[in-house]
Each structure stands twice: as structure tokens, then as C-alpha cells.
Design a protein around this nucleic acid. Structure first.
Length: 430
RNA sequence: GUGAGUAUAGCUCAACUGGCAGAGCACGGGACUGUGGCUCCCGGGGUUGCGGGUUCGACCCCCGCUACUCACCCCA
């Protein structure tokens, strides 16, 4: 036997049995975001590495050590260009918007994307090297109304999935006017308590002091309990923005908790940041990877990527994690056929093939067993694939232009004319 | 990148102190000649992750490797 070639580490096959959940999630993305006026954009999976270095931030872990990067084959006279599999969706969407002059043509745009992202991390529950993200972005409004509508869209999306134990956590990071002062205050505070911090945090103090606030170590948590909060160091415009957003969320009856420990891992965020966190625990939960959707405002990103000075706010949701939550919910997302046609005898088989084709053309989802076999086996098959109805087509029925239509759920069965079968199925509410 | 745990049938797991590798589910068939689910019966399926060592004998003990899982880190 030849040696087997297996999938690349951290990259999962989504098998047909999983797709019911995924279609459900993707359907809700299109439905919900469509209602809010978001239009889909699809960008390439491969981008120039420079896009992420500039857009996401050179110092971030994502860009610094998690990207799949390689040199493109060199052309005739030029050097190869460094390319990367996209690790996130915002920078590519912004790149496309700039490239196609979206900002020159529409002062306000709502875009969403959906697709695979790649990060070379050590995988664990809900964290894979190829994973799927949906993201929504609003370009062109600096006002808190944009933040509020976007958060509302994320909230309604998660509710539409039936995820009730998800909570919204909110924070603000300030902007270039007030964040430096806050960071200085924080660093001063931390320096006085260096001895109480874990090794990781002593390192983070210099590299990314905000992260110390997010440490799970109990001693660190205690040490930073009285740390300065970004909310207390906001400049006047940032404070007004945050207060207005909170009032708008209250008006939307959208519950949230303030969490000063939320810090985003991407450099481009300003002002508003938020996370939707799943509180489900145990088998159906997500363990430590429980942030299911997260985002914030990034007013400087478009300009820093060479576009006009246009403000933006957006979020991304991890679809693998949502699928995991749905899988643990015990709900069924089976996509069974309307009708399974069971045929007996060669001429009935021939008729069944044509009948299936006609009904499929009418819009019905039809299944049949393509192997010859007894009625029992075909019934079992129909049950297994979750068919709502079974049509039993034998030689006797065929001669009379009839067949028996059985509703699987109740077992009731009655004769129907083949000519009126489509109308019958429609009437049955299938 | 760091730490811990696990590895036996497609899946979930058994197998006493080292003594013939098993069950449930799933799959196929039958009980029921043209009626699914429930029940009962039968069946196919295995290099016990890989390599070495100890032993009369290894799923079991020892060493190495690999993979996976969870956690840290990071993030959605």
C-alpha cells in the first residue's frame, strides 16, 4: 500500500456532515448583514506581505511570526515579490476599496467579507491554521452612530444563530491624542509593581503594556487591580464619542459590560473596541478561545494604507468557533431531501429517474438509491438521509399512473397521481 | 515558541500483576417475498501511531520519534 498523504497540520476538512451548520451560519451572515445594507466583497487569499506589515502592524504576533510568507517566483528581470496568505480580512478589504476608488465614489460604504484566513499558530480548540472569518466594515463615518449600528449588526447576527449566552464587552483605547498619556501612566504604575508580575508580564511591560491588563495569572490580576484605566485618561473628543456610543447602545436596549482589559492585538484600532464572548462551558463551550466576534474603530488605517483620511469601524467573527458552539448545542442542521423516490422493478426505475429529474427542475430536492435493491433497503436509506416523504413506485402503481406517497414523520401513506405530484408536494408544505 | 496529557476497528472506549485484541455506535445482511425508526440474530472490518529495547511471551514495562488534544502565548 502506498503511503498516505495527510492534511497539513492545523488545516481541517469540513465534511458533508458538517456543512449543514456552515450553510446555516453563512446564510445568516448574508441575511442579517444584507438587512443592514452590507455588500459582500471578495478579495484574493494571497496579498503582498507589505500590506499586512503596514496594515496590521509589524510588531504584532500575527505579522511577526504567524504569517505564511514566501517569495513569488522571480520574473524575467525583476526580483520576486514577498507574498503572504492573508491572516485577516480588514487590510485586504481596505486595500481593495482604495484600489477601486470606493472612497471617491461613496462617502459611506458598508462592506462585508467571508472566507478563509491563515495563521501559523499552535492549534487548539477553536483555533486552527486555516480558519474562516466573516467581517463587516463601515467606511466613512466617524460618528458613534456607526459604531452603534455595527455592534447592533453583530449582536443581531449572533442572536439569529441562536447563541443566547454571548455577552458584549466594551472598551475604548483612546486615540493618538490621549493614548500616549494613558500608556505612560500605565507604565509608571507597572514599574512600581514589577516584582509582583509574572515573567511574561515583565516582558510585556516594555513591548505592549496594555497586554499586562489581560494576563490570566492571579498574582498579576491582583497587582493590576488598581491600574489606571484608559477610560479615565480620555481626551475630550474620545470621551464624548464613548459616552455617546454608550447612550446609543442603551437606546438599542443592547446590554454590555465595560471591560477595561480588552486590548486588541492589531495595531490599527483607535477608540472603540469590543468583543462578543461566549459563556458556554464544558463540552459545548470553547474553552479559552471563547471570543467569538471582536472589532473596533480604526480611523487611521485607510490613510496609512495610502487612501484618503476616511474613518472606519468593523468587526470579525470566527466562524469555526460559531460552528463549534452550534455543534455543541445539540441542534440539528440536517438538510434532508423533500422526497425520496423508491422504485421497484426495472421499468419503475427508469420512470423514477425521469420523475426525479422533472421534480428537481421544479425546485424540489429529490433523492433516490442508484443501486438496485429491495424496498426495505430503500426505506432505510430514505430514513437515514432524512427525507420528509417517500414515493413508492412499483409496477402496479406505474401502470395506473399512480404511486404511494408516505410522510415519514407520521408514517401515513396515500395514493397520488404522478401527474399532480408536484402540486401535492407543494400543498404538503415541503 | 513553552508545558501537560493522550495514542487500540470509521467513531467512543475496554482488555486483571506482562498470558489467544473485545464491546457499543456506525456500516452490510437477515428475522419481515412491497415499507424506515424500535427489538433480536448474523457479518465484514486491526501491522494496538512508528522504531528500537527488556522478556519464553508486550496493547501493557523502558528509550527514542511522530501525531493529536488541552493549556500558556496569541487571537476570531
Amino acid at each position: 500500500m502506498a503511503e498516505r498523504i495527510t492534511a497539513v497540520k492545523g488545516m481541517n476538512d469540513l465534511l458533508p456532515a458538517d456543512m449543514g451548520r456552515w450553510h446555516f451560519i453563512e446564510g445568516k451572515v448574508r441575511d442579517l448583514l444584507g438587512r443592514y445594507g452590507f455588500a459582500e466583497v471578495r478579495t484574493p487569499i494571497l496579498e503582498k506581505t507589505a500590506l499586512f506589515v503596514r496594515g496590521v502592524g509589524e510588531g504584532t504576533d500575527i505579522v511577526g511570526k504567524e504569517m505564511y510568507t514566501f517569495e513569488d517566483r522571480a520574473g524575467e528581470a525583476q526580483q520576486g515579490v514577498m507574498l503572504s496568505l492573508r491572516p485577516e480580512g480588514t487590510a485586504p478589504a481596505v486595500r481593495a476599496a482604495i484600489e477601486h476608488n470606493q472612497f471617491g465614489q461613496e462617502p459611506l460604504s458598508r462592506w462585508y467579507y467571508l472566507g478563509p484566513m491563515f495563521r501559523r499558530e499552535r492549534q487548539q480548540k477553536g483555533r486552527y491554521r486555516q480558519f474562516y472569518q466573516m467581517g463587516a466594515e463601515i467606511y466613512g463615518s466617524a460618528e458613534p452612530f456607526a459604531d452603534a449600528e455595527l455592534i447592533d449588526a453583530g449582536w443581531r447576527f449572533l442572536r439569529a444563530l441562536g447563541l443566547d449566552d454571548v455577552t458584549l464587552e466594551l472598551n475604548t483605547l483612546g486615540d493618538e491624542a490621549c493614548r500616549p498619556a494613558f500608556q505612560n501612566a500605565l507604565i509608571t504604575f507597572l514599574r512600581e509593581r514589577t516584582a509582583e508580575l509574572c515573567g511574561d508580564c515583565q516582558r510585556r511591560m516594555e513591548s505592549n503594556p496594555l497586554r499586562v491588563l489581560d494576563c490570566k495569572n492571579e498574582r498579576c490580576k491582583a497587582a493590576v487591580a488598581g491600574a489606571p484605566s484608559s477610560v479615565d485618561h480620555l481626551c475630550e473628543p474620545c470621551r464624548a464619542h464613548f459616552d455617546a456610543l454608550r447612550a446609543l447602545l442603551d437606546g438599542l436596549k443592547l446590554p454590555y459590560v465595560l471591560n477595561p482589559r480588552i486590548v486588541r492585538g492589531l495595531d490599527y484600532y483607535t477608540r472603540t473596541v469590543f468583543e462578543f464572548v461566549s459563556r458556554a462551558e464544558g463540552e459545548g463551550g470553547l474553552g479559552s478561545q471563547n471570543t467569538v466576534c471582536a472589532g473596533g474603530r480604526y480611523d487611521r488605517l485607510i490613510k496609512s494604507l495610502g487612501g484618503p483620511d476616511v474613518p472606519a469601524v468593523g468587526f470579525a467573527a470566527g466562524l469555526d468557533r460559531l460552528a463549534l458552539l452550534l455543534a455543541g448545542s445539540g441542534r440539528s442542521f440536517a438538510e434532508g431531501p423533500h422526497l425520496f423516490i423508491a422504485s421497484l422493478g426495472e421499468s419503475a426505475r427508469v420512470r423514477a429517474l425521469a420523475l426525479a429529474s422533472e421534480l428537481r427542475a421544479e425546485g424540489f430536492k429529490i433523492d433516490q438509491d442508484l443501486r438496485s435493491g429491495g424496498l426495505k433497503g430503500q426505506m432505510r436509506r430514505a430514513d437515514k438521509v432524512g427525507a420528509k416523504f417517500v414515493l413508492v413506485l412499483g409496477e402496479d402503481e406505474l401502470a395506473a399512473g399512480k404511486a404511494k406517497l408516505k410522510r415519514m414523520e407520521t408514517g401515513e401513506e396515500r395514493e397520488v397521481l404522478l401527474d399532480t405530484l408536484a402540486a401535492e408536494l407543494r400543498a404538503c408544505g415541503s
